[in-house]
Design a binder for these strands. Structure first.
Length: 420
DNA sequence: TCTGGGGTCCTAGGACCC
DNA sequence: TCTGGGGTCCTAGGACCC
């Protein structure tokens, strides 16, 4: 039985969270600001109606609008994380095929509803509202990309009343006609510009292209996107939460940093925070990345950006060792005479800390194993139905797996693969 | 004078997402 | 004066190896 996908997305999530415990804020324009109260990261519908844009710098909003009457909140991630968990718990009751995609979105795999999808999803929506106070919109379609599209209209169009069901790729066509390339999941302005230059100026036109041809020009990601628009699922439901692949701690500075000592302190702080996050997840790292740059919003100022990754010969979760490595990197990247605006530390090549303690972590082998794990996950999702065989008999395992993974549908003969 | 082919690993950076 | 933070995936190129 075909599994189809619902995308449930919380409306104006952070702004809605602020409202849950302060009902008097309902009906008023609310915005939530980023760290340092730098820019707008969430808006209620009323704030959107005032023309406040996502990501707009708060100081520009203030210049532009009389801010009297606009409710402004600094972000409160502890609250949003907690509300998110509550919403996800409710959603997970509706299906065993559940993927929490982001703090405010989840994909649900649904099968066997036999045309009763819409009442089912309306019930879901009402339950979330009743039990958490958060309004959600629901899009339903044969693929994730189309579910995203359906969700967009479910949210925007009053006639949908929060739910839009698309039975197949064909019923998506009218909606493809009514949006822009950049409204599609995976198309931002750069790709949209490249597509337009080729004469593909609308989502409908993109859906009408030849997927293989598009792969040649744009790569495997575009091929998947086109197929998904045509109703062919290429992006699977990830029902088990994947392990983190990187952990980042970065900040923009409140004021420019010109002193190396000051930068060293900042870097040490980021390392400590990232390492703490990592230990909480019982992980260790074998690769540390450091970056810093000047203020990109002031092109008239001297610009400098640099980053470097260092491979640690042993995976570790020890803050002191990581700090030493990071300061070492900083020594190589630092240039006097610049005003730095931002810096960050990323921990990569994460492995279970237990493996390190038991001496099981072998760096030379880790990429290969990662590839194997990914391929096996994909095959499990495919339940052995895949049809593409390993065309690489006799080549190395990693190469074969890599080719397999580049296939848009991740299909490999699992028995052959496991025999490799 | 000619100047392989296939593969791994590392690094850097682009593009996109929320 | 004032422009977030945390992620993922993919590609390309160079060093190196056989």
């Amino acid at each position: 039985m075909a599994v189809r996908v619902a995308l449930v997305d919380c409306n104006n999530f952070y702004a809605s969270c602020e409202r849950v415990f302060q009902p008097h804020l309902r009906g008023k324009p609310i915005i939530v600001l980023s760290n340092n109260d730098g820019c707008v990261i969430a808006r209620s519908n009323e704030a959107k109606a005032l023309g406040i844009a996502m990501g707009e710098p708060w100081h520009l909003v203030r210049e532009r609008l009389p801010t009297k009457g606009i409710i402004v909140r600094s972000s409160n991630y502890a609250l949003y994380g907690d509300m998110s968990a509550r919403v996800m718990q409710v959603l997970a009751r509706f299906t065993p095929l559940f993927e929490a995609y982001s703090i405010d979105e989840a994909f649900l795999g649904l099968a066997g509803l036999g045309g009763r999808e819409e009442p089912h999803l309306r019930e879901l929506r009402a339950t979330v509202a009743r039990e958490t106070g958060i309004p959600v919109s629901v899009g339903f379609a044969p693929t994730k990309t189309l579910a995203k599209l359906a969700n967009r209209f479910a949210k925007k169009e009053a006639a949908c009343d929060g739910v839009l069901v698309l039975d197949g790729a064909y019923s998506a066509l009218p909606y493809l006609d009514r949006c822009e390339l950049t409204d599609l999941w995976g198309i931002s302005h750069r790709l949209a510009a490249r597509l337009s230059a080729m004469g593909i100026v609308s989502p409908r036109a993109l859906a009408g292209t030849d997927a293989r041809h598009m792969r040649e020009r744009f790569g495997v990601v575009m091929e998947r996107l086109v197929l998904e628009l045509q109703g062919v699922p290429c992006i699977g439901l990830e029902d088990a939460p994947a392990d983190r692949k990187s952990i980042l701690c970065s900040r923009s500075f409140g004021r420019m940093v010109t002193d190396r000592r000051e930068m060293e302190e900042a870097v040490a702080t980021y390392v400590a925070r990232a390492a703490e996050k990592m230990r909480r997840q019982n992980l260790a790292t074998a690769q540390l990345h450091l970056f810093l740059h000047t203020n990109r919003f002031r092109p008239a100022d001297p610009q400098y950006a640099a980053s470097r990754t260092i491979a640690l010969n042993v995976a570790t979760a020890d803050t002191m060792r990581l700090t030493t490595a990071a300061l070492d990197l900083l020594g190589g990247l630092w240039r006097d005479g610049y005003a730095y605006k931002k810096a960050g530390v990323m921990l990569l090549e994460l492995v279970p800390a237990r493996q390190v303690q038991q001496g099981l972590f072998d760096k030379a082998d880790s990429n290969r194993r990662k590839a194997l794990m990914t391929a096996i996950d994909a095959i499990n999702r495919d339940h052995g139905r895949g049809t593409v065989t390993l065309a690489a008999a006799g080549r190395t395992q990693a190469w074969a797996l890599k080719s397999a993974m580049r296939s848009p549908r991740f299909t490999t003969r699992w028995d052959e693969l496991l025999a490799v």
